[in-house]
Amino acid sequence: MYAYRVLWMFLLGVALAAPDFGRWYPFPQAQALAQEHARVLMVYFHSAHCPYCEQMNTFVLSDPAVSRLLEERFVVASVGTDTPEGQELARRFRVPGTPTFVFLVPRKGAWEEVGRLFGSRPRAQFLAELRQMCAKGGACE
């Protein structure tokens, strides 16, 4: 019985220590997670009525290969540009429109942009570009 309890506590501890990288986070939280876990931060700027964001949400960001790579190597920050906070971030990153993906890594105490993508794209292209960003960010060898 005791052994089970120890095992249970251990599993709970693991679950608490490993955040769910399959979902997206608000910008400050995502930034903290990327720093803590040495991952590439992908800041996804989207807006509610843009059909190209809808296309990314429905088919590209849920593609199994894309999902796996994001979950294994990235932290995704979800920024809706319809909110005041989102607009402020979009200005700060000079985002031209939606969808935009800005890739950041923490280097020497500052955030360095390793690349960005503007506009929707087919799944295979997005996957290839993610791999490039991952390599540039030092999270993929």
Binding site: N57, T58, F59, L61, V76, S78
Partner: peptide, 11 residues
């Protein structure tokens, strides 16, 4: 369709 992600990235 079951493949769409919401603003929190959940399916």
């Amino acid at each position: 369709p079951g493949t769409r992600r919401d603003a929190q990235g959940n399916l």
